[in-house]
Every structure is written in structure tokens, then in C-alpha cells.
């Protein structure tokens, strides 16, 4: 038996005029694939460099989406380190005083800067799962798009706080090398091509306990991303960790704190 929790879902790329309808559609499709829980973040449409108003609008949409499906979904609050006060306020509203259990940081601002520190500190106090998008793009990163090396710099300042390296840098052969020595960083398998060897290298370099399945649905298919785990030449025990047990372990502190039973 393998429990599958998907770390990385959005309300984009799926039919439905409202967040609730899109969430319902995602859950239906995920159900065909045996996926039990979906983590969802960011709204419709999303902003790459969200203003405080954008943050509230997008987070409200996620609250709407997860509100109807509390036993199938988890919400992560979308924050922008360019707006620290507004981000901290959203963290209080959506996580401390709301149902969300994680933090999503995307491409507005490079993550190595000191602006990140109060956000990471407060998220850690709340036991929230922290997710930072990263990419090593040979055609050029966006101005605010972080690399795994920049995430390592952040993680070194918060060595007791687990942080997820979104996409493992996309170019996973580089990303895994970048993060392997920083033990509080975890690899997100989501949102890249299902290139064979990815998961094997992740397990070899990080250990199965630091690797997490995610899809980046609805822009990505569940299939291509699950294929990275099902198709990998790794032990079944490692697959179980990657598909859900690792994420559940990372989430357990905040779920317990909120009295959420899974």
C-alpha cells in the first residue's frame, strides 16, 4: 500500500470558473491516479510579482478551493518577500489563524536575501511547510527567480528549519549537487520533464527521506510526475517515502498543532 500525497498543485490548467470547481476537477482526476491529498497554492490568474492585494486575492481563492475539500487538500499561503509586512500579515491570516499549513515562495525575489529571514522565522514558529521555487535555467532565470545555490544560502541561516527546493532547480543534475550537503533542504520532483535517472540520483545523493513527489498540476500531468517515482529503479520502501510518507512527516507538526487528523 502506498499513500500518495501531492506536494505541488495549482488552480491553473484545469477547467472550472470558480476555485471550488477547479479544485473538484483536480480531485476527481487525482483520484484516478490514486492520489489521496493535494497541496495547492496560488490563484487564478497568478501574479509573478504579487502586490499585497494580489496576495490576498490569490490566497482567498485557495481558501475557497480548500474550504470545500478539507479532507483531500492542504493550502499553502503565497507570499512575496518584496512585501515583508504584508507577507507576515498573510501568514498570520492564512496559517496562524486560518487553515493553511504551508508557505509558497515563487519568483518575485531571489531567496538568498535577508528579507526572507523574518518570513522563514515566523513560518518555522508556526511549523509551516516551506516551499521555495528554484531553477537553473540555461536560457536565463527570471530576475527574481532563485537558484538552488541561493536557497542553500538561505537554508544555512535557518539550519533547523526544513525547506523544500521547488523543482530541484529544474536541471536536477545540478540542483541535486547544489543541495545535497545542506541537510535541511528537501528535493521536490515536480514540474519538469520525466527524465529517467532523476529519482535514482535524488535517492542516491540525498537519501529517500529527503525526496518528495509533487506534480505541478494542472499545468503538468499527474502521470508524467508520478512516472518519475513509479518508473525509478529504487526500492519500494523508497517509493513509499517519496510518494507520501516524507511529506506527511514534514507536515505532522503543523497538523498536530492545528488538530488536523489524517
Amino acid at each position: 500500500m502506498a499513500m500518495i500525497w501531492d506536494l505541488h498543485c495549482h488552480l491553473s490548467g484545469v477547467d472550472g470558473k470558480t476555485p471550488e470547481k477547479r479544485m473538484a476537477q483536480l480531485i476527481t482526476i487525482a483520484g484516478r491516479m490514486g492520489i489521496e491529498r493535494l497541496c495547492v497554492y496560488m490563484g487564478m490568474p497568478w501574479a509573478r510579482d504579487p502586490s499585497p492585494e494580489d496576495l490576498r486575492r490569490e490566497n482567498d481563492q485557495v481558501l475557497q478551493a480548500i474550504g470545500k475539500f478539507p479532507d483531500r487538500t492542504f493550502g499553502f499561503v503565497y507570499l512575496n518577500p518584496k512585501h515583508v509586512e504584508a507577507s507576515l500579515a498573510e501568514l498570520e491570516r492564512c496559517v496562524a489563524n486560518g487553515p493553511m499549513v504551508g508557505v509558497k515562495l515563487w519568483v518575485a525575489h531571489r531567496c538568498s536575501g535577508p528579507e526572507l529571514d523574518p518570513i522563514i522565522q515566523r513560518a518555522a514558529e508556526l511549523k509551516a511547510v516551506i516551499f521555495q521555487h528554484t531553477w537553473f535555467n540555461v536560457t536565463g532565470n527570471l530576475p527574481g527567480e532563485s537558484t538552488p545555490l541561493e536557497l542553500v544560502a538561505l537554508a544555512r541561516r535557518h539550519p533547523n528549519t526544513p525547506i523544500i527546493c521547488g523543482h530541484t532547480g529544474g536541471d536536477w543534475e545540478l540542483g541535486l549537487r547544489a543541495i545535497r550537503g545542506q541537510r535541511n533542504l528537501y528535493a521536490d520532483l515536480a514540474g519538469s520533464e520525466p527524465v529517467a535517472g532523476y529519482t535514482e540520483m535524488a535517492v542516491r545523493e540525498l537519501g529517500a527521506g529527503r525526496v518528495l513527489y509533487g506534480s505541478d498540476a494542472g499545468g503538468r500531468s499527474f502521470s508524467s510526475q508520478l512516472g518519475k517515482v513509479f518508473g525509478a529503479n529504487i526500492p519500494e520502501s523508497a517509493k513509499k517515502l517519496i510518494l507520501g510518507e516524507n511529506l506527511k512527516r514534514l507536515m505532522t507538526p503543523i497538523l498536530k498543532a492545528k488538530g488536523i487528523k489524517v
Binding site: 502521470s223 508520478l226 513509479f230 518508473g231
Partner: peptide, 18 residues
């Protein structure tokens, strides 16, 4: 696109759509 991609990626697509 095997063996560059995991074969399972394509196979699962037959299951993901109704």
C-alpha cells in the same frame, strides 16, 4: 520517449484521462 523519459509517464496518461 523511452529510455530518455520514464516509460511509466506515458503509460499513466492512459489512466489519467477518462
Amino acid at each position: 520517449h523511452a529510455p530518455f523519459y520514464y516509460f511509466e509517464s506515458a503509460k499513466l496518461k492512459l489512466q489519467e484521462s477518462d
